[in-house]
Design a protein around this nucleic acid. Structure first.
Lengths: 146, 146
DNA sequence: TATTGTTATACTCTATAACTATA
DNA sequence: TATAGTTATAGAGTATAACAATA
């Protein structure tokens, strides 16, 4: 068997490389961790969201969201409001500083993504899109079966 | 911007899922770490290889290879022979126990990979193959430029 | 001077679960 | 009993660089 041709390995190597590409922006230029960047992106619609929803939208654990949110609150990027519908919960919402950061950061990562995608034709992108989705579904199936 | 549609995020999530699928085999059933599994796979051709070559073939740091090899040597999976061509180096080589482990492990991860790929037509697989390669090249380009 | 492999160290991440307060 | 969020802790993984031996 050839490791170089093994799909999980290839995807892992690519993910690592893409993560570094994007990380050069959010980590090195803006001092955010990966989790903080995901929380920022998950709040991008400008709304207020419960932590558990942010977790679902960002593929993070509730604990990771809690910690990232605490750091971002301390940095003045977001605020925590009591959830009016549930006394246990909080709603997260970007503050102006968080929105400003987002507005600077997103065009930069977007243009990196665009550069990456220039490697593919529109048809290839469509296939890739489907492939990522379907492989994810199959992987979930395998994982649920053990 | 929609995190769910962002390519680096999608690839990261998929890589995580695929890594768990394969990890269920090499970690949970055979007690190997990811690095040890990669070293095992990189020695799969039955030959003797320098650590620096294993590192290149497995996308690991020389330090990770050194540590993984030390653990695998202690476990009797591989042996270290002095490199006849370079007094500084060692050649790694699977021992019978390592080859036996490999022979049991590979069919299992192979069948998982095959199950995953059933989600795609042969044409889609070919496109995915090209896409992974080209995206990796572009990412390397971005990283080298900063 | 550069390279192979080893070791040290500090740091980050991850996983698990205990814990509180509400539902 | 179950859920939202917080906190604690231990273990794993990562990054950096110093180091000895050899090229």
């Amino acid at each position: 068997m050839d490791l170089q041709q093994f799909l999980p390995y290839r995807v892992a190597v690519l993910a690592e490389a893409l993560s570094q590409c994007v990380g050069q922006v959010y980590r090195e230029r803006f001092g955010l961790s990966r989790d903080e960047w995901r929380v920022l992106a998950a709040l991008a619609d400008g709304g207020s969201h419960r932590m558990v929803d942010i977790a679902a939208r960002s593929t993070l654990e509730k604990m990771q969201v809690s910690r990232a949110a605490a750091r971002m609150e301390a940095a003045g990027l977001l605020g925590k409001l009591p959830d009016p519908d549930d006394g246990r919960g909080w709603l997260l919402r970007l503050k102006p500083a968080g929105r400003a950061l987002y507005a600077k950061l997103v065009p930069m990562v977007r243009s990196r993504e665009a550069f990456l995608l220039e490697a593919l034709t529109p048809e290839e992108r469509a296939v890739l899109d489907r492939a990522l989705t379907r492989l994810g579904q199959r992987a979930a199936q395998l994982l649920s079966q053990g």
